[in-house]
Design a protein around this nucleic acid. Structure first.
Lengths: 196, 196
DNA sequence: TCTCAATCCTACCAGTTAGTATGTTGTTGT
DNA sequence: ACAACAACATACTAACTGGTAGGATTGAGA
């Protein structure tokens, strides 16, 4: 059971990197086989077809990664506005798993596969809903603890922040430079300060 | 000269719709030929290859469309904050050329082709830079006319607003519903009001 | 009306795609 | 030690991909 699991995981990880860099449709199974040194028979032993592998990437790799990088930094914090800013700063400027030239994996997947693959959309939707939920909670708690003004609508803010994050990721991709992140982050800080 | 031009334009328009809905890589030349009723010979008479057609779509269709729908509404206006809000509202809620389920054509193209096709990136970059420039000017003028606080950094705001627009387009695509646009627009209005 | 280039058409090709059929090898429990 | 199944390997296919070769048709100017 051990080695087979390793083979499967290897396929998922290498495939993710390929897809993150080049897109799902533009990553062929032969590409994956070449980098993993896995044969076609082995691939189709582990996955019924390409889409099942794509779904496994979302559920088994991206979902845990989101929890670790996008959600944990929002937990056990004092000042929610600082926490949100620090999280976005961390994701944009310091996380070296996410590459500026390739954008946001979840956003890429969404843009490429929605609305043509319902399973993908649903799996991605769950991931994003999770982030939304946690961020909304953080803001609500901030209202209770006085860090955030009571009139602030938590869900609206969460939508606004996450949209901005997705958009600036696309901007960075277009310009192929983290330079655009700087003015975005400054304005994000200004915006968050207005919520006090 | 007339009919040939019509053929070319027909190819561009139908191709744009296909690509907007399904992506560039996932739109085959045979797909285009089928819907346009144009033969392969005619296609390759008008375009050296698929990429040249893709570039023509950006430069000859998307660029003018951007000017008309994204830039003109920002010209000859009084209150710049209202103008920006109204523009985004128009684009998200009323423009029936842009479909919620397909997102933003420029963002889609960017995400799919960058960083693999330099020509595409440059052409798309020009389009976005144009929008950025106009929006920055609008904000600067608003500072002079007193509608916007003098401390506001125009370019930062433009980055912030455009990023949000791109992001919420992706959100709409994921949820396949304009519902998500509503909280986003409310918070956009709140944000813009803080710039007074 | 004739010419000739612009425009379009048909048949084809070599490469790539996801997926399958039919095996062989490795491992595990008894 | 051996049966039985998990795990992997090889060779293949049918459909599709972007692109080309070479010929047919059209229309505008002489």
């Amino acid at each position: 059971m051990k080695k087979a699991e390793a083979t499967r995981l290897n396929i998922l990880q290498k495939s993710f990197e390929f897809i993150y860099a080049r897109g799902y449709q533009n990553t062929s199974i032969d590409d994956i086989l070449a980098t993993t040194q896995v044969t076609k028979g082995a691939f189709y032993y582990h996955f019924k077809n390409k889409d099942e592998m794509g779904l496994a990437i979302i559920n088994e790799l991206m979902k845990p990664a989101l929890t670790k990088s996008f959600i944990e930094p929002l937990q056990n914090i004092k000042n929610p506005l600082d926490a949100i800013y620090n999280l976005i700063h961390l994701l944009l400027m310091e996380n070296d798993f996410l590459k500026v030239e390739y954008g946001c994996p979840a956003a890429n997947f969404t843009q490429e596969m929605t609305p043509w693959n319902k399973d993908f959309s649903e799996a991605l939707g769950e991931i994003i809903q999770e982030w939304m939920k946690v961020m909304t909670n953080v803001i609500e708690n901030g209202k209770k603890s006085g860090y955030i003004h009571k009139d602030v609508k938590a869900k609206q803010v969460a939508f606004f922040v996450i949209s901005g994050y997705w958009g600036i990721r696309n901007f960075g991709k277009l310009e192929n430079s983290k330079k655009v992140y700087v003015p975005y982050l400054k304005e994000l800080k200004n915006y968050l300060n207005t919520l006090k």
